[in-house]
Amino acid sequence: MEFVTPEGLRQDGRRPRELREMRAEIGAVSKANGSAVFEMGNTKVLAAVYGPREVQNKSQQMSNQALVRCEYTMANFSTGDRMRKPKGDRRSTEISLVIRQTMEECILTHLMPRSQIDIFVQVLQADGGTRSACINAATLALADAGIPMRDIVTSCSAGYLNSNALLDLNYVEDSAGGPDVTVGFLPKLDKVTLLQMDAKLPIDVFEDVMELAIEGCKAIATYIRNVMLEHTKQLEYHRDG
C-alpha cells in the first residue's frame, strides 16, 4: 500500500506532518460536573467527569489522596459495522487503565483526600487515534469540572509507514500494521507521561517518530488552551450579562 505518494500527500490529502482538523466543545453533558466533546477528524469522543465526590466503595478510600477511576467505552454505532460491543473487554480495560494513569499523573490528587473522581469517556465515532482523543477530551472535561491539575495533558499518535514518519494516524493508516506511537505530554512541564508503541522500530527512527508525536501534542495543547480561554470568556460574559 502506498500511504504517502511521491508528491508527499497522504491518502486523505494531508502532508506527513499535519494533524487532522480538531474541534472541541466544553460542557456537552449538563448533569456531569465537567464534560467535553473532542474531535480529531472523524474521531469523536465524549468525556464526562463526576467528582470530586464521596468514595462509593469505602474500602478503596485513600486518606492521603483522591481515587481516580476511568471507564472507556465505544458506542455500538462508533464503527462501520454497528456491532454490539461487549463491556469490559481486554482492549477497553487496557485503554481505561492507560487513560486513568495518564490523568492521575496530572491531577493534584493530594489536595482531595478521601474523595473519588470518575472519568467516563465514550467513543462516538472511531477513525483511528481514539486513545489520544480520549485523553484530550478528558483533559478538557477535568478542566471544566474545575479539578486542580498540574498542567493540561494532551496526547497524539504518530506512526511510521513507507519510510515516512506520519502524524496523527487515521483508521486506514492505523490498520496498516506499522508501528504506532502514542504519546501523552505535559506541555508546560515539558514532560512525557504516556508512551506506548506496539511494534518494532529502530531506535533512531523511533526518536524521530516520538519527537513528531510530541510536536503534535504541543499543537493540540495550544488548541485546547485556546478553547478553554474562549470558554472562560464565554462564562465571564454570561456572568456579567
Binding site: 491518502q11 486523505d12 490529502g13 487532522r20 472523524n42 462501520g80 459495522d81 487515521n170
Partner: peptide, 26 residues
Amino acid sequence: MLHNKSFVKKTKSGKVMKQVREHYLR
C-alpha cells in the same frame, strides 16, 4: 492551509458498509 471537507463513500466488501473517509482539499 487546510481546507477541510469530509465526504461519504460507500464500499462493498462482502457486505455493504458505509465508510467515511476524510478528504482534505488544499
